[in-house]
Computed example of a mutant assay.
Amino acid sequence: MNMISDNALNALIRVGHLATQAGLVAQSIRFFEHLRDAYPLKAFPYVGIGLACIKTGRYAQAYEAFEQARTLDGSNGDIRLWCGICHLHCGRFAKSAQIFREIIATPPATGLDGFLELAKLLLDSPQLSPFRRPIVPQHIRG
């Protein structure tokens, strides 16, 4: 049972993201923390916190938020991509490359082609070159 209507909730989520974009990061994080308290089993508050942390370069904190979101919604491809980006910025290159390879090897869901292309571009970054290896798509591995 939702506490408020889906339309109202979506509007609140947009407000939180707009606050991040406007540079009101601390306020945005507090806003999403309140939403997290109201919706503890939903991934969206953690995604909002993670994106706000990225805005200020706090990639380790962002990773923790995205990892919590991934625990709640493991099928969300963009959360996996953000986890890989956080690993990349934290210098955890092997883990970052592993996530990007997994994204590339898994057939993309409808509408996630952009995430697939971004994962390919990031895997080609100079920092990850030592961790590149052939990718065998999941549907070919059997």
Rank of each mutant, 00 (worst) to 15 (best):
M1A: 12
N2P: 15
S5T: 02
D6Q: 09
A8G: 10
A11H: 09
L12V: 03
L12K: 10
L12I: 04
I13L: 06
R14N: 05
V15F: 05
V15K: 00
G16D: 00
L18K: 06
L18A: 08
L18I: 02
T20C: 02
A22Q: 09
A22N: 12
G23L: 01
V25W: 07
A26R: 10
Q27W: 03
R30V: 04
F32H: 11
F32W: 09
E33Y: 03
H34M: 12
L35S: 02
L35A: 08
R36S: 11
D37G: 10
D37R: 04
A38E: 08
P40D: 09
L41S: 14
V47G: 04
G50A: 10
L51Q: 14
I54T: 15
I54G: 09
T56C: 10
G57W: 03
Y59D: 02
Y59C: 01
Y59I: 00
A60R: 02
E64D: 13
A65N: 02
E67F: 03
A69D: 03
T71Q: 12
L72N: 02
D73P: 01
D73Q: 14
S75A: 15
S75C: 09
D78Q: 11
I79F: 06
R80F: 06
W82E: 00
W82H: 01
C83F: 02
C86V: 06
H87P: 01
H87Y: 10
L88K: 08
F93P: 08
F93S: 09
A94F: 12
A94K: 12
S96P: 03
I99H: 03
I99G: 02
F100C: 04
R101A: 10
E102M: 05
I103L: 13
I103V: 11
I103F: 12
I104E: 07
A105P: 07
T106Q: 14
T106A: 11
P107F: 11
P107R: 10
P108C: 12
A109P: 01
A109W: 05
T110R: 14
G111W: 05
L112A: 15
L112I: 05
D113S: 14
F115Y: 06
F115G: 03
L116R: 07
L116A: 04
E117R: 03
L118Q: 14
A119S: 12
K120W: 13
L122W: 15
L122P: 14
L122Y: 15
L123K: 02
L123W: 14
D124S: 13
S125E: 14
P126T: 12
Q127H: 08
L128D: 03
L128H: 04
S129Y: 15
F131T: 04
R132F: 13
R132D: 09
H139Q: 12
I140K: 11
I140W: 15
I140E: 13
G142W: 12
G142T: 14
G142Q: 13
